[in-house]
């Protein structure tokens, strides 16, 4: 564990050094992300000019869901997004190098590259979350739960990307199934209840990302018992562990077939 932490810190530092080389790339990347989110948010303000609420949720409440989900997503996207690069490594034959080192190949892939543009998403997410937090006058005591919820969200996104990338162990051609992780975020940023039943089930049972923002929202705005918040880290951990199991099954298949 200590070794992994050191490995993480070094990878982080290396990634920062690389920023220096591609500094313009970094600045424009972050700006691009900010503009993208700004336009999405403007749209939302615009819609709420016409309607009081959507499905019983006010603008500030929707922003709360949006921000909480985005912070968890951007943590994944900043540090662990490289899991979805697996098909490229396999196709170019670069994957084998992870298999000859005394460290989990999955962890090595995560550490191999970070995504700098996602810093923009993290900042956007935090600003939206703070804004809605203040507007809704959420009691400060809930700050204590915030890190756990956000990290759980990150873990669930990580689990989704791990499960989806496992497909590339089975297909020789590069399939971008893992990129679906990014699309999942688009659904998860609104309260679950606005979706049809099928999607609600998918986002609670199959890819449990729906619960990350939804349970806190229900606790705060619909007065369900706060103890339900504990479900979030539990589900996140179980889902993450399961996803790594699936990944290693895929790896075993890869070892059997080769390329």
């Amino acid at each position: 564990m200590k070794k992994r932490l050191l490995y993480f810190c070094k990878s982080f530092k290396i990634n920062f050094d690389e920023l220096e080389i591609y500094d313009k790339d970094f600045i424009f990347g972050v700006l691009g992300v900010l503009v993208e989110y700004l336009s999405g948010l403007l749209m939302m303000f615009f819609i709420y000019d016409f309607v009081e609420d959507i499905n019983g949720w006010s603008l500030d409440q929707v922003l709360f869901f949006y921000g909480l989900n985005l912070v968890g997503y951007s943590l994944w996207s900043c540090f662990f997004i490289n899991t979805i690069t697996l098909p490229y490594y396999i196709q170019r034959g670069e994957f084998d190098r992870f298999l000859v080192r005394p460290e989990s190949p999955l962890f090595q892939i995560m550490m191999d590259s970070f995504d700098d543009d996602s810093w923009g998403e993290l900042v956007t997410g935090l600003i939206i979350l703070c804004y809605s937090w203040i507007r809704l006058r959420i009691p400060p005591i809930y700050f204590l739960a915030l890190p756990i919820i956000v990290v759980s969200g990150c873990l669930i996104y990580l689990g989704i990307s791990i499960i989806l990338s496992t497909f590339s162990f089975f297909t020789i051609a590069q399939a971008d199934v893992a990129n679906i992780t990014m699309e999942v975020k688009e659904f998860a940023k609104y309260p679950l209840t606005i979706y049809p039943k099928v999607l609600q089930i998918i986002f609670t049972v199959v890819f449990p990302i729906g619960i990350v923002a939804f349970i806190p929202g229900m606790v705060l705005f619909r007065q369900i018992p706060w103890q339900l918040l504990l479900v979030i880290p539990l589900v996140a951990i179980v889902f993450f562990v399961l996803s790594t199991r699936v990944w290693y099954l895929g790896l075993k298949h890869y070892g059997g077939t080769g390329t």
Binding site: K3, L6, Y7, K10, S11, I14, D17, E18, I21, G93, E94, D96, R97, V100, R101, P102, E103, Q108
Partner: peptide, 27 residues
């Protein structure tokens, strides 16, 4: 292990920086 046709080192880093990472991975 060295695979002659594939690189183990990171493209944008110096060899010394890659070695430092290997130092951590191998302990």
């Amino acid at each position: 292990v060295v695979f002659g046709q594939k690189t183990q080192l990171k493209w944008d880093l110096s060899p010394l920086e890659s070695y430092d990472l290997l130092k951590t991975i191998y302990g």
